[in-house]
Design a protein around this nucleic acid. Structure first.
Lengths: 117, 117
DNA sequence: TTTTCATTTGAATGGTTGTGCAAATGTACA
DNA sequence: TGTACATTTGCACAACCATTCAAATGAAAA
């Protein structure tokens, strides 16, 4: 028992200090969680997986994801604002693609992690 | 324009079929999203980051994460049910640790991805 | 035993969010 | 011009979730 501050009692003060210092480097947990939230949804995940294999228009994506057109459009805007997908317009159609194929590395790791449990 | 099924009009049928087949392999999007949700929260992320550096008791974790004791306990149960953390009891204290240090690889990738934007 | 303290649990709540409907936008074609 | 169609957007709502409070559990010390 070492200290008592502000209603929170710290038991291993030295360990806490050491870990706190180690955690200080790198991006904030909020920023990282915010990015991960973009992937932590079945619909958005399917969109990303689909776009990893091809550039696709909204219409085709709805068929692959299984959601209403407007629902998908909302999620595409979400992903656009997070710079995860980009799009180009060609006539009436909007073709979406990934801004950074690097993300699939991350999903591969997740896929691997799940499979081994 | 190629087909019209169930109120959903598919424009590039061949591409859709090809991508659908490619997406079929691997874990379901729901399972992956479910796992990612465990990481997509600042509190849980801080817990995981802290436990990556040391085995810690609940009391110390509250100081590092900045949340009430019971709030933390709820999140620890959540992470326990997902097999992300484990714990051992020593007297009155419960010491938590990561079940799989492999997760930090994933977080490193996320951290890297965020930094390069 | 009684007290003290670390942790867990249940209930309640405020806030967030994924989704669909209906209307709006914009583009090509007749 | 007007029609048809792909996409976006605003609104609304149901479901989910992170958090806190208060009470319960369990284990060591007095």
């Amino acid at each position: 028992m070492s200290s008592d501050v502000c209603d929170i009692s710290i038991i291993h003060q030295d360990e806490v200090d050491r870990v706190a210092k180690a955690m200080a480097s790198g991006p904030s947990a909020s920023a990282m969680a915010d990015f991960l939230k973009a992937l932590a949804d079945p619909t958005r995940l399917k969109v990303i997986q689909a776009l990893h294999h091809a550039e696709l228009c909204v219409c085709d994506l709805t068929a692959l994801v299984g959601i209403s057109v407007s629902g998908l459009s909302h999620q595409l805007r979400y992903l656009r604002n997070k710079n995860i997908v980009k799009f180009r317009k060609e006539g009436k159609l909007a073709y979406y693609s990934l801004t950074d194929e690097h993300i699939s590395q991350l999903l591969d790791l997740v896929s691997e992690h799940i499979s081994e449990i």
